[in-house]
Amino acid sequence: MQEETSAQAAIDTFLSAFNASDDTYVTALLSQALTPDVTFWGPLGRGEGVEAVERFVLDIRRHPAGAGTMARCSPVDVPGEWARYQWSFTTPNGGPCLVGTDVVHLRRDRIDKIIVFAGDTAASS
């Protein structure tokens, strides 16, 4: 139960960085959720460190269709130190919506690995 609660807290804090009221809060939120040496595998490749994740988050926040909303749309599944969850990113006024699944590894209640699978897996099979 503690693993699930810690994983969900780290994941929800990570996702809240996408929805921060101002870009200046993004770094603080990511620093709470991620280890300094986090490894991030995203749609555009691999990065290391909080700064790499911050660049990704800021790019998403500056989506051409407007600032969107990131939401976790599934429970957090936590088998041990790994967790997965589904998310959706929706832009304003019926703009583009992106869905996906993240798999994260946790170390001492913080995320040290993030693997982003963007897109609907049901649609691609």
Rank of each mutant, 00 (worst) to 15 (best):
V50K: 01
R110F: 06
S31P: 02
D120L: 04
Y85G: 01
F18V: 06
A20K: 06
S6A: 15
G66T: 09
T5H: 09
S88E: 13
A83Q: 02
P92I: 05
F56Q: 03
T101A: 04
A33V: 10
V116I: 12
L30P: 00
T13W: 03
D22F: 13
Y25G: 08
T101L: 09
L98E: 02
T121Y: 11
P96I: 05
N19R: 12
R110E: 06
F117T: 02
V26T: 07
V104S: 01
Y25N: 12
G47S: 14
I114E: 00
G119V: 06
E48Q: 15
H63L: 09
P75T: 14
E48I: 15
R46D: 04
P79I: 11
L58A: 04
V76F: 03
R110M: 06
W41H: 13
D109V: 11
T91L: 03
D77T: 14
T90A: 15
V99M: 02
T69S: 06
T90V: 15
F56S: 02
V76E: 00
A71T: 10
D120A: 02
A9G: 00
A28F: 08
L98K: 05
D12Y: 05
M70K: 11
V78W: 01
R72V: 04
L44Q: 13
I111E: 02
V78F: 02
D102K: 01
V103L: 12
D37A: 12
K113W: 10
L58Y: 08
R107Y: 08
G49C: 10
A7K: 07
T5V: 15
F56L: 09
F40L: 04
V116S: 05
T13R: 07
T39N: 06
T101S: 03
R46V: 15
D120G: 01
S31Q: 14
A10C: 05
A33T: 10
G80T: 04
F117H: 08
P92T: 05
E51R: 12
D23M: 04
V38Y: 09
A33F: 07
E81C: 03
E3G: 05
I115H: 10
W82A: 09
P75W: 08
S6E: 13
F40V: 08
I115W: 12
T35C: 09
T91C: 01
P92C: 06
P79H: 07
D77M: 11
C73L: 06
V50H: 02
G42W: 08
G94S: 03
S74Y: 10
P43T: 11
V76M: 07
G49M: 13
S88H: 08
E51A: 15
M70C: 08
Y25L: 15
L15K: 01
D77L: 15
Q2F: 11
A52M: 11
V57A: 00
A123M: 02
A10L: 04
E51M: 05
A17V: 09
H63K: 09
G94V: 06
G42Y: 06
V103A: 02
R55M: 12
T91V: 08
I111M: 04
I111C: 00
T91G: 01
T13M: 00
R84W: 14
L34F: 06
D112R: 07
S16E: 02
G45F: 03
T27K: 12
D77P: 01
S124K: 15
A28D: 10
